[in-house]
Amino acid sequence: MSGLYAHYYTWAEVCLLTTLSESTIRSMGKKDTFPVREKLSPGRVGFPKKQVDLWLKDRPAWERWNRRRLEKEAARGQHEETRDKNAPDKAVDNSIWQL
């Protein structure tokens, strides 16, 4: 792999490294207890290698890092799992669409 993809693990690599199943990793991701996968292109996701490596090496350190990340996102109202991506931006005046 080269370029952007060199910095990410695939599903197969993460399952092999962690000895966890894809469904277990998905469940852990929903609970914010595993590094978040990122959409790399249509139909392709990856797990940031630095985060997965830290999770494998030192889970308490990763959990502290993740807790800080979630707190910052919550303060900005941008947590991926809870944010409705289809909702209009609060800063946009939608009154012109009302009849």
Results as ranks from 00 to 15, higher is better:
3 G>F: 03
5 Y>T: 08
5 Y>C: 03
6 A>C: 03
6 A>Q: 01
7 H>D: 06
8 Y>N: 00
9 Y>G: 02
10 T>Q: 00
11 W>Q: 00
11 W>M: 00
11 W>I: 00
12 A>G: 05
12 A>D: 03
13 E>F: 03
13 E>H: 02
13 E>W: 04
15 C>S: 04
17 L>F: 10
18 T>N: 01
18 T>M: 01
18 T>W: 03
19 T>E: 08
20 L>E: 06
20 L>T: 05
21 S>E: 01
21 S>R: 05
22 E>S: 09
22 E>M: 05
23 S>W: 02
23 S>V: 02
23 S>G: 04
24 T>H: 14
24 T>R: 11
24 T>W: 12
26 R>W: 10
28 M>G: 11
28 M>W: 13
28 M>Y: 14
29 G>P: 08
29 G>M: 03
30 K>C: 09
31 K>A: 11
33 T>I: 13
33 T>V: 15
34 F>A: 03
34 F>D: 01
36 V>I: 12
36 V>H: 07
37 R>W: 06
37 R>V: 08
37 R>E: 01
38 E>C: 10
39 K>C: 04
39 K>D: 00
39 K>S: 07
39 K>M: 01
41 S>Y: 07
41 S>V: 11
42 P>C: 10
42 P>H: 05
43 G>A: 03
45 V>K: 00
45 V>Y: 02
46 G>R: 00
47 F>D: 04
48 P>L: 07
49 K>S: 04
49 K>V: 14
50 K>D: 08
51 Q>T: 14
51 Q>P: 15
51 Q>Y: 14
53 D>V: 10
54 L>I: 10
54 L>D: 05
55 W>K: 04
55 W>Y: 12
56 L>M: 08
56 L>F: 07
57 K>Y: 14
57 K>P: 13
58 D>L: 06
58 D>H: 05
59 R>M: 08
60 P>I: 08
60 P>G: 04
61 A>M: 03
61 A>G: 09
62 W>I: 07
63 E>P: 15
64 R>H: 10
64 R>C: 14
64 R>P: 10
64 R>M: 09
64 R>F: 09
65 W>S: 06
67 R>E: 12
68 R>V: 15
69 R>D: 12
69 R>Y: 15
70 L>G: 10
70 L>A: 02
71 E>D: 08
71 E>A: 06
72 K>S: 14
73 E>S: 10
75 A>D: 14
76 R>G: 13
78 Q>V: 15
78 Q>S: 09
78 Q>E: 12
80 E>N: 07
81 E>Q: 06
81 E>M: 12
81 E>Y: 13
81 E>P: 13
81 E>F: 15
81 E>L: 09
82 T>L: 07
82 T>H: 06
83 R>I: 14
83 R>F: 13
84 D>Y: 05
84 D>M: 02
85 K>M: 11
85 K>Q: 09
86 N>V: 12
86 N>Y: 13
88 P>Y: 11
88 P>D: 03
88 P>A: 13
89 D>I: 03
89 D>A: 04
91 A>N: 02
92 V>T: 01
92 V>Q: 00
94 N>P: 15
95 S>Y: 10
96 I>P: 10
97 W>K: 08
97 W>V: 10
98 Q>E: 08
98 Q>P: 14
99 L>G: 12
